[in-house]
Design a protein around this nucleic acid. Sequence first.
DNA 1: AAGGTGCTTGTAATCGATTACATCGTAGCG
DNA 2: CGCTACGATGTAATCGATTACAAGCACCTT
Lengths: 341, 341
Amino acid sequence: MADDRPIRRTLRIAEVAKLAGVSTATVSRALTDPGKLRPKTLALVEEAVRRTGYTPNLAARSLRARRSMVVLVVVPDIGNPFFADVLRGVEEALSAAGYGLLIGNLGPGAHKPAQVLDIVQAGQVDGVLLLNGNVPRDAERSLDRMDVPLVAICEAIPGVTFPQVEVQNREAARQAAELLIGLGHRRVAYLSGPAGNILEAERFGGFCEGLAAAGIAGPVARYRGDFTFAAGGAAAEEFLRAAERPTAVFAANDEMAIGFLKTVRAAGIAVPEALSIVGFDGIAFADYVEPMLTTFRQPRRALGNEGARLLVEAMGGHPSTARVRMPVELLVRASTGPLLG
Amino acid sequence: MADDRPIRRTLRIAEVAKLAGVSTATVSRALTDPGKLRPKTLALVEEAVRRTGYTPNLAARSLRARRSMVVLVVVPDIGNPFFADVLRGVEEALSAAGYGLLIGNLGPGAHKPAQVLDIVQAGQVDGVLLLNGNVPRDAERSLDRMDVPLVAICEAIPGVTFPQVEVQNREAARQAAELLIGLGHRRVAYLSGPAGNILEAERFGGFCEGLAAAGIAGPVARYRGDFTFAAGGAAAEEFLRAAERPTAVFAANDEMAIGFLKTVRAAGIAVPEALSIVGFDGIAFADYVEPMLTTFRQPRRALGNEGARLLVEAMGGHPSTARVRMPVELLVRASTGPLLG
DNA sequence: AAGGTGCTTGTAATCGATTACATCGTAGCG
DNA sequence: CGCTACGATGTAATCGATTACAAGCACCTT
């Protein structure tokens, strides 16, 4: 077996120093703080670096400088297009600031959060960005106590001190209720996200408030879901079985709204004539279902950007406890209409 | 200004060693190769680790062991749901093998590839996974020459020696042609991806082959696209303006097919009665447009998994030059139908 | 009983950059 | 002119783990 893999010829700083005729300290300074050097010396080093193609070993740098220029992005599911978009914003802001991003996918496994904590504790990352925490509450608390800068995006976690960036879930959900009521609906249903999810709670709460303001006790049905297409379909089955069906549904996210929409239409329900549907998130596909989905557009990329920006500031020694609440935009489209009959 | 941030009390291996009454070497071995220790000693160390909550400093470990347990995943666009799904598979396989993933988003900027190369050269990662390379050809060549293990997913790059995982693009595209021909179509159009993209070339080539086999010279129109919804819409505009319209369209991916579908339907074209549409990828949303899109399902997650698996093997010292070609599955649905008239 | 073998464990060198501290030179000041 | 102060650069300690090598030990063979 040919085991003669080429030995990695790692170029060390010492060789660059020798070529430039200076000390390693000078090379290091040229790379991390050029202002400290006389222009002439700097030029010497730069020329040597250019000629050798030298790149500093990041592990060594992290070890000594105690910073890795990497942030851990904890995401419940990379495959989800919503988070994918947020990630885009995060990546943009972080890479502009010179940080790399290490992905920590939580997935379904229960052991994962511990892994994530380990990475943090191992001093491998300079900061952590939580995207909508499936992170168990006590883990969040530990993170908060750990001294690594932390920012949460898309979730308002009570009782912690790190900055959070979220959207106006409650206000938007109330607005959804108002929209439906304005169209004459009174028998409305709610299609919820996973129990315990804070966004879900906010949206449900806001929706109920909106209904209450119009003298409606609450939704006539609350379907249990988990933010997936399939959950939307399952909820629709339940809807179809009901003796007296609601005339409108507000779903806690677009995927479920779309799953619901497809199933009820397949069963011959006319949308919006017989049933109005409102989603949440404003994912790209909401524009391509038929009828086009009425929904709330979240500034996904901006959320990611803003969160990353706050984190970069915090890592730079300017921590804040800001709770940024970004606006969402109601997009009234063809899946909602006046109550007929 | 309160600058009394808590000093990170990093627990060193020496302290664990002292607590356990052994040497640092023993602690290290307990953590990286427990089989080397006597069960009794191992237990001693484990107890000390447990009590202190010690986690090794990864920077130090990388520096000395010359491996970071991190792989760089180069992706053209994290926001794209197709890649998001592939990433899910990648993440799964990598984290199972104990590797973390560092995201290198290429995005539109031209300077990015160099950044990516730097990361690799800095010895920060143990391997590189290329998802459908926007990576310029010469950069790919450099990567190939660098001695870090490399695997490409979703793209067949000619002239390089690293393993590649792709799907049977050519065969599938030929099958698309056969499907349409079998339904009686002869005036067919092709909606293409970005010029220079290898998948695109494969799909176009296969499609033409399929047509040629039935004695058809080629598509009557070739719309230029870039894999986005918007490109599909633009192509549809062009389609609508044509004097003699094609009766079927094969799009190089689902997003474009869906964009196309929406625009033509809005213009009153009946699908599939007046126009058949075939997509490629089998993204989740293809199931939720109306009519449901006929498309080829790519095993996205499996692609990611397989690529990651090959990479892990290569990093473990078992390089291969495999070119895995995974099958795609034709899903015939409601967006295609027999030619009428 | 002496020597060999193999398994555990310890000692200390090492990975490659950063940076505290020392040194040197020069300009500025009285 | 001599002294100080400061800016530029060099020397070497340091970050915290891994691991080559050595040493210790128990057991087995002849």
